[in-house]
Design a protein around this nucleic acid. Structure first.
Lengths: 130, 130, 130, 130
DNA sequence: GTGGTCTAGACCACC
DNA sequence: GTGGTCTAGACCACG
């Protein structure tokens, strides 16, 4: 399981982990029931504090995406993919809403923003490098 | 000059002020040379600390949007609106880029995101009441 | 007597007056004994507060460049031009010293700074437009 | 990291810090990626308020010279030294321009000012002890 | 009246 | 431990 942390991005480390693991679950890289690395293992791999990996897993568990079985490890939860996707869509919706209001206030047009969005959209398939 | 603060939004107060003033400048509600309320006046109006309004104006000045003349007040800077809009567009571009990569990883389609964006786009004119 | 105030320069208004009057005295535009406009007249001409012109004249008087005769007006003082020039040189020396130390710390060379100075030096004679 | 504050200089403390840190970055004493002391540590060392050190770092960050990672510390930014030096040169250029015009108006010659500049230029290397 | 600077002290998020 | 934000209160320079 490859996770890339960007120290300079400004985003909290635990959040970067959450987002990347969530993405892997939602796009099928990680299937329900699959085991995740232990918090200690992941901390060692990423060269960060155990506290940070623990926090990330806590967050993922709170979102119902993974399940921790004490003494046995952590696993991808059995879940309704469509429902999850809907919930993720609502998360993006919130972020887009903030951007939309800002851009709108600044006098930008919806089409301006859509054009911007198209210009930054990644061209490759999300699974190419899997 | 109407500014609405949302204490529950989680966003820093000074940032909310920055965003709203910037929007007013960029969409033409505030024209170059126009005086802004004094930091003390604005603080009184919004019922917040003078330091917070000062912080907001400081940030706006660092961005080159306003100019403060000690002892005389604060004014909208003479600026190249097009250049400013371009720089603002690049800011939104950065934000959209983060969302785009996340959404892409999560398996969402560009058209899904565009649809989301359209669904949250505000319908009214940015300054009908100007 | 032409004085140009630059509201956007950031420099205090009274200081701009002081500097320009001092320059006119030192370069001979204003000769010893010549009358200066009254503080009220000057304030009216420049469309600023009397307090500000008063403060400027006070400063000039403290520097020994002008003399105020109560009830009669304000005049350029009889002075030793060479001594004045020397004192002015020391003022510039202080300012240059600050710049020199900063530039030196930043790793700039003396010749770099001299080159910069030459590049900004006004080309015309100071009296051309008199 | 040695910083010397002069309470009697009239210059704001935060600005003195900014100038000295900027000088250290530009002359290579502080290399990109190097950690700066925490705002609290520096405040303790200099016996000033945390807010003042914070203000200084804020200014340096706005100038793009350093980057602060919340919860992790503050570091010298990766930057294009030449571009930075050019921008600094333009700052000195502005200051020199003000002096040049003043000196010119006062009847001083370019060579007079250059001579003054040479007379105040520090003789030692900027970082002999590095 | 205006902004500029410095101070002390609090709470929060993150590592 | 780190920085981020907000608060109150003081003194100064400038108009």
């Amino acid at each position: 399981m490859l996770i890339a942390l960007d120290n300079a991005s400004g985003a909290p480390l635990y959040q970067q982990i959450v987002e990347q693991v969530r993405a892997m679950i939602l796009n099928g890289s990680l299937r329900p029931g699959a085991p995740l690395p232990s918090i200690r293992q992941l901390a060692a791999d990423l060269v960060i504090s155990v506290i940070t990996t623990k926090r990330a897993y806590q967050e993922l568990e709170a979102q119902g995406l993974i399940i921790t079985l004490p003494g046995r490890g952590t696993f991808v939860a059995e879940l309704d993919l469509d429902a999850q996707l809907a919930s993720v869509a609502s998360i993006f919706g919130t972020q887009l809403d903030a951007i939309a209001r800002q851009a709108h206030l600044a006098g930008l047009d919806l089409e301006d923003v859509v054009a911007l969005l198209r210009s930054v959209w990644p061209s490759s398939s999300p699974h190419e490098a899997k």
